[in-house]
Design a protein around this nucleic acid. Structure first.
Ligand SMILES: [Mn+2]
Length: 786
DNA sequence: GACTCCAACACAT
DNA sequence: TGTTGGAGTC
């Protein structure tokens, strides 16, 4: 959903920019957007179960477009459902099958175009489809990561730790997650995008919406109040009124009080409590940190943290599992080994990859992942030393590519560590626009005829090449990423044909962190902590072939070069702000209102700690000041009657059914597997229905996994230590996490293929462990709601 | 009139 | 996921 109305409200600070303006930067990409659009290319094929990878081509085309503009994409995939998301999955699934049936019926009558209309509505992006994209990314050495939960939070994390300079998405939520630079509506044809910079928030003035002087917390509050994915809004409250109320009353508590006293709208019971949880999802959702190679909170939780919260923002996972998940080797929803639904699709490898010795088990090291996983030296904590990671970090056949990506991340980490300068003075509030608004060069047509020329004709001969490859290669016994030597040769041939040269030079990162309003207008800032970026040296295409699709070939074998070159500036001179707080010059301190008034225990929370804990934590320190007069005590009594709704029961009921649905899903899964095991083949024909799943799925549809001879069983789990929070005044309670208790001994690896579906990671021996993890996860993912 | 809510639609070629 | 237009509400 996102925050409806947010983008229009921010129109006044939205600027359409040409991609070339981001040259030299690394931009995180919300993969779902491209995959979702790509699906339109081949909806019919997907719905009818035909193998296709057109949706990957669509996405890769954009990847190459970015690279063409000297932007390094860092692709981020969605993970499993967050407990916070309610599973509306059932009726959706029903609708999908309807559409599928209708589509097939029409197709049978030859009405293919009408059929397609329905097909489109029944196809959805699955993790397995995402994996096809990942295969292509690996082949072209593009950094990527799979989020344990929502891509939103993952994207925000990458920006926060400085691995990327900005984010490409369509989801307005990203702004609520605290992202600084977000690019919406990227258009491949014009090579433009609509850029919203957080530093401009202070100058928002669209239709009565104003954010000057607001903190991130206030902004987030506005978004949540107006209704978000984690919490529907109070009836009648939209973005505008949320904004207005918040402007007047400053804190959520007071806003609620005002609403209650007004008496026209009914506030759900425990709304404030739910609000706090929703807030936590935005602030502290769990993400995978490529640097630490484990799950971390987006923002470190501080006070007001308990186990409920800790699970609500996404249960922790064992680091070894988290890593596999983050790198795409697990289905993030089921935690089962990723399944390759289209093994015949082998993305063209543009360059033989440099592999160190540890990596050189390609073609046969089926169990290497598992070996590494469970082996003696496997799961370990990444310390500050990038070396340990380098020697140890291999994930099976993913081989060179991924280790490259990982190494890149670690290089970034090192730089980041070394370069971490003094924390700049930052205001926590959105600055009011000052001085003359910077004249922004928009759509600065990149120097060139070249850009235009290269954009237009996109030849699709790639497909042919790939097709040839498919025909040639034997994929029966090895996973796709394990490239046969033969392919490497083909690749080299291609390289000779297309050989393009790319400069190895270091490209100066641009300062990406804004400190004041001026920064965004002038991205390049002499005297900044980072060296003034000379406008990137553009890759030249010596060939007459201007097609940027061929660009990728240009990467030299020592592919680390380009990666380093694209190190985001933020890695170098800044340490990430705590809560993504931004960062402009100080604006007038918002006044603090003393909370006096009716007892709204129902809407607030019986256990509320303090009436003025409103602007939580350390983030917003407000100086006491006079402000709109708080409600008078004598109005107090009325408040009790204002609560007309009692959603508690409804909610419980909903939870019950949700739990049931999930449980049913699991039962089906395992039941089907059991049956399948007997038969020998467990995967039903990949009908469209079985292949379709929304990304918010809570229920695991049957027929999506390989038959696994495992069963669910209860298991204990161990508490693990909590990430130390530097500013946590009190120690956090220990957190539960997925832990393998039994020593696992890897057996001889054996590939597994059924119905053309190949398991990428073979974990036969660890079924129990995985099953336990899943059981745990299932519990986590469907907890009782507050 | 301002705002919220909802249903329908676009998204690729 | 966003956008649009129209209905409904205050
Ligand atoms: Mn979202």
């Amino acid at each position: 959903m996102g925050i409806s109305g947010l983008l229009p409200a921010l129109k006044s600070i939205s600027a359409q920019k040409h991609l070339s303006e981001f040259a030299g930067q690394t931009l995180a990409v919300d993969a779902y957007v491209w995959l979702h659009r790509g699906v339109f290319t081949c909806a019919t094929e997907l719905a009818t179960g035909k193998d296709t990878h057109k949706y990957v081509d669509y996405a890769m085309h954009r990847v190459r477009l970015l690279r063409h503009h000297n932007i390094e994409p860092y692709v981020v995939f969605d993970g499993g459902p967050l407990p916070a998301k309610k599973g509306t999955e059932v009726d959706r699934q029903a609708k999908r099958s309807e559409h599928l049936a209708l589509g097939k019926a029409l197709a049978a009558q030859g009405k293919t175009s009408q059929a397609r209309e329905h097909y489109v509505k029944c196809v959805d992006v699955t993790p397995q489809m995402a994996f096809q994209f990942i295969k292509a990314l690996r082949a072209e050495n593009v950094p990527y990561v799979v989020a344990p939960y929502e891509a939103d939070a993952q994207l925000a994390h990458l920006e926060r730790v400085g691995l990327v300079d900005g984010i490409i998405t369509e989801d307005s939520d990203l702004l609520v997650f605290g992202c600084r630079k977000v690019l919406f509506k990227m258009d491949a044809v014009s090579s433009t995008a609509v850029c919203i910079d957080r530093a401009d928030f202070g100058s928002v003035n669209t239709d009565g919406i104003t954010l000057a002087g607001w903190s991130d917390t206030q902004f987030r509050a506005m978004a949540i109040l107006s209704g978000c994915d984690y919490l529907p809004s109070i009836n009648g409250i939209g973005l505008k009124t949320a904004c207005t109320l918040l402007r007047k009353w400053k804190t959520v508590e007071q806003v609620l009080r005002a609403i209650a006293l007004e008496g026209k709208k009914s506030i759900p019971r425990k709304y404030l409590q739910s609000f706090r949880l929703a807030e936590k999802c935005f602030k502290h959702q769990r993400v995978y940190c490529p640097l630490q190679q484990k799950l971390v909170h987006l923002g470190q939780p501080d006070a007001d943290w308990d186990e409920e919260s800790d699970e609500y923002v996404g249960p922790d996972l064992d680091p070894a599992l988290a890593k596999m998940l983050g790198e795409g080797d697990l289905d993030p929803v089921t935690l089962l080994p990723m399944t390759d639904i289209n093994p015949r699709y082998v993305p063209r490898v543009l360059k033989p990859l440099p592999m160190n010795g540890a990596n050189r088990n390609k073609g046969k090291g089926k169990a290497s992942t598992i070996l590494n996983f469970f082996g003696p030296a496997a799961p370990r904590k990444i310390t500050a030393s990038p070396k340990s990671a380098k020697t140890n970090m291999i994930v099976g056949k993913a081989s060179g590519k991924r280790s490259l990506a990982a190494e890149m991340d670690h290089d970034m980490a090192v730089k980041r560590k070394n370069g971490a300068g003094p924390v700049l003075t930052q205001s926590r509030f959105f600055g009011v626009p000052r001085a003359a608004p910077e004249p922004e060069v928009q759509i600065a047509g990149p120097s060139s005829s070249k850009g235009l020329k290269e954009n237009v004709p996109l030849e699709e001969e790639d497909l042919d090449v790939e097709t040839d490859l498919e025909a040639d290669l034997d994929w029966d016994s090895c996973s796709l990423v394990a490239l046969p030597d033969r392919e490497a040769k083909i690749v080299e041939l291609e390289e000779m044909d297309n050989g393009v040269e790319q400069e190895e030079g270091y490209i100066s990162p641009t300062p990406s962190r804004t400190r004041d309003a001026e920064d965004l207008s002038s991205p390049l800032r002499p005297g900044d902590v980072t060296p003034p970026p000379k406008k990137r040296i553009k890759r030249e295409c010596p060939n007459s072939d201007p097609d940027f699709e061929a660009d990728a070939v240009s990467s030299p074998p020592e592919a680390m070069g380009p990666y380093r070159a694209r190190l985001p500036a933020s890695v170098i001179g800044h340490s990430p702000s705590r809560d993504g707080a931004i960062l402009v010059d100080a604006s007038p301190d918002p006044p603090r209102t003393v909370l006096v008034g009716p007892d709204l225990r129902d809407t607030f929370d019986d256990t509320r700690t303090s009436d003025i804990d409103c602007f939580d934590d350390e983030e917003d320190e407000q100086t006491p000041t006079s402000t709109p007069t708080p409600p008078t005590p004598d109005e107090e009594d009325a408040s009790g009657d204002l609560v007309l709704v009692d959603p508690e029961e409804l909610e419980q009921r909903a939870n019950a059914s949700r739990a049931e649905a999930v449980a049913a899903g699991w039962r089906n899964t395992w039941a089907l597997n059991g049956k399948a095991t007997v038969k020998g083949k467990g995967r039903e024909t990949p009908t469209a229905a079985s292949n379709l799943r929304r990304r918010e799925t809570n229920v695991t549809p049957a027929g999506r996994h390989l038959p696994i001879n495992a069963h669910l069983r209860p298991h204990p789990y161990l508490p693990t230590s909590v990430p130390s929070s530097k500013n946590a005044s009190k120690p956090l309670r220990s957190r539960q996490s997925l832990t393998f208790l039994d020593p696992v001994r890897p057996k001889a690896p054996r590939g597994r293929v059924s119905d053309g579906v190949t398991s990428v990671v073979d974990v036969d021996e660890d079924e129990d462990a995985v099953a336990r993890a899943q059981a745990r996860l299932a519990r986590f993912r469907c907890p009782g709601m507050p």
